[in-house]
């Protein structure tokens, strides 16, 4: 869980053990008293505000993403020939994101919630420029640093430092910048002498801590974080949340995909809820979360799009 002020810290550490799964959260969020507005604004860090006339930092305009992928595990000549003989086509279309539009002005931290397979990660990938949309348009103003679910492009045979350098160079930083960054990253991730050992020798916690440190040390204008807050132990979480709030005051926008509804509520000031590729709701985190949890409880049949 993320807390932004020093006084909350001790409680938040103990809370981390009960990282609420979606089902737990449903109860917790519904029962908790509404958060006092003044208290909330105290908790949240000051952020950048859009200048007059500034276009949104990220603008997603009627975006649809259709994966065309094979359902074979490994596409080969052999299977292609066999298929040709049977007159089948191996391509299956998966509609991951369906006509989604929203704008994110400067200074926003946007939470993205939704059940598994809602298209959250696909949307993040396309904002990062990895997956092109099938139709529609995405405009991004600024440099993106992404921490997607799979971590950064790490090669287990190389040392942590080499991986960090590679990631930084791929992100377009210069060599000097990257080498300087690598030192900060190692320090922040607290992995000590492991930084120069091959990554296959890392524990999963070290791996995640390193991945998190890399993405927050690349001077991002826009930060994409996909389920990364589970990285590390309790003390690292506190450190991570401090770093995040520091980043929120310096970066232009932040996207947070998480199943931990509590973190979304605490860290974000805007929220979208996606379900099966559709944008169900774009509202304040509190309202999105209560609608989402209600939806989960009531079930899909009783709560269709028409009811919104």
């Amino acid at each position: 869980m993320i807390s932004l002020s020093a006084s909350d810290r001790s409680t938040s550490v103990s809370e981390t053990k009960l990282e609420p799964g979606v089902q737990d959260a449903t109860g917790a969020v519904q029962d908790s008293p509404p958060v006092d507005e003044a208290e909330k604004s105290r908790r949240k860090t000051p952020k950048q505000t859009p200048l007059p006339g500034e276009p949104p930092t990220v603008s997603v305009q009627d975006v649809t993403i259709v994966y065309r992928t094979t359902f074979e595990k490994v596409p080969t000549f052999k299977s292609a020939i066999v298929r040709l003989g049977r007159g089948e086509r191996a391509v299956r279309e998966v509609e991951a994101v369906n006509h989604v539009s929203f704008d994110v002005p400067r200074g926003t931290s946007l939470g993205i919630i939704g059940a598994n397979g809602a298209g959250k990660s696909t949307l993040m990938r396309s904002i990062a420029g990895v997956l092109p949309p099938t139709s529609g348009r995405i405009e991004v103003r600024g440099k993106i640093s992404s921490l997607l679910a799979l971590g950064v492009g790490f090669n287990g045979l190389l040392s942590g430092r080499e991986n960090v350098i590679l990631g930084g160079l791929a992100a377009g930083l210069s060599r000097d910048q990257v080498e300087e960054r690598a030192r900060e990253v190692a320090e922040f991730a607290e992995i000590g002498e492991f930084m120069d050992l091959p990554m296959r020798t890392y524990s999963s916690g070290m791996y995640q801590r390193l991945a998190f440190s890399v993405s927050v040390h690349m001077d991002p204008d826009i930060l994409l974080i996909d389920e990364a807050l589970s990285a590390g132990d309790a003390s690292f979480k506190v450190k991570a949340s401090e770093k995040m709030s520091e980043l929120m005051s310096s970066s232009r926008a932040m996207f947070l995909v998480s199943h931990s509804l509590g973190s979304i509520e605490q860290m974000c000031d805007d929220c979208i809820w996606m379900h099966k590729g559709k944008l169900m709701m774009h509202d304040s985190p509190e309202r999105c979360i209560s609608a989402y949890t209600k939806f989960l409880k009531v079930g899909e049949d009783a709560f269709t799009l028409d009811d919104l």
Partner: peptide
Amino acid sequence: MTTSATVPDWDAELQVYEP
């Protein structure tokens, strides 16, 4: 960050992802 003090060439860092 950098653009906030000076002015607005909003499209300086614009990246567009289209199909």
